[in-house]
Amino acid sequence: MFNFGFLWLALSIGSEITGTSMIKKTHGFSKLGPSVLVICAYALCYFALTRAMSTIPVGVAYSLWCGFGIVGVTLSSMVLYKQKPDFPAIFSMLLIISGGIVMNTFSAM
């Protein structure tokens, strides 16, 4: 049977990436539009994360949320803010992704 927890987790990760990526555009929460987007994105993020954790072990859900959030925010910062990760950053993101895959595939948690 399909575990809908992973859909909730994907929604949580996506909204966390959105919220975190937009923080810079709030200019200290002085701009209303981006500030509302950040607050709504984080509210959705944590709601979806709680739903995901009802069917996915906490350690697995949180490690995937953190790891893929880091990678997603880095990728979005490349697009939004023209930031370029260097080799150590790229290598580290590959380790994060592979760690998430290994944990999700082989962990018996």
Rank of each mutant, 00 (worst) to 15 (best):
A89L: 09
M103K: 09
I101G: 10
M103W: 02
G69L: 03
G59V: 02
L37Y: 05
I13T: 13
G59E: 03
K82W: 02
M93A: 13
W8P: 00
A61D: 10
L11T: 13
I23P: 06
K84A: 11
F87A: 15
L44P: 00
G59C: 03
G19V: 05
K31S: 05
G33D: 01
G59Q: 03
L44G: 10
V60P: 03
C45V: 04
L95Y: 05
V73D: 08
G69W: 01
A48G: 02
G59Y: 02
T55D: 02
L94M: 13
T55V: 09
A61F: 07
A41E: 07
L44E: 08
A108M: 12
L75W: 06
A43Y: 01
K25V: 11
A52T: 06
S30Y: 00
K31Y: 01
S92A: 14
I17S: 06
L11R: 05
P88L: 05
I101M: 12
R51N: 12
I97E: 08
A43K: 03
F4N: 10
G99K: 02
V102Q: 04
I13E: 08
P57Y: 06
I101W: 09
F47A: 09
A41H: 04
I70A: 08
G59I: 00
S76M: 15
A108W: 01
C66Y: 00
S21Q: 12
G99N: 06
G99P: 02
A52Q: 01
I13Q: 09
G14E: 13
W65H: 14
T20Y: 04
G19D: 00
M1I: 11
M1W: 05
L9V: 08
M93N: 15
Y62F: 10
V73F: 03
V38P: 10
G59S: 06
T26Y: 05
G99L: 07
A61E: 10
G5S: 08
Y62A: 12
T105I: 11
V73Y: 07
A108T: 13
G69F: 03
K24R: 15
L95W: 02
M1S: 14
I101D: 10
M103Y: 09
Y42W: 06
S35Q: 03
L64A: 15
L49S: 10
K24P: 04
I96C: 07
R51L: 14
C45P: 01
M1G: 14
V71I: 13
T55F: 06
G19E: 01
I90K: 12
M22I: 15
Y46C: 05
E16P: 01
L7Y: 11
G59M: 03
M53Y: 05
G14P: 01
F106A: 10
V36H: 06
F29Q: 05
L80R: 11
A89T: 14
D86A: 08
G67C: 08
S92H: 01
A52N: 02
F47W: 11
M22F: 13
G5D: 00
S77K: 00
L49V: 11
V60R: 09
W8H: 12
K82M: 08
N3A: 10
V79R: 14
L80M: 14
T26F: 02
A52M: 05
M103V: 07
G72D: 04
L37M: 14
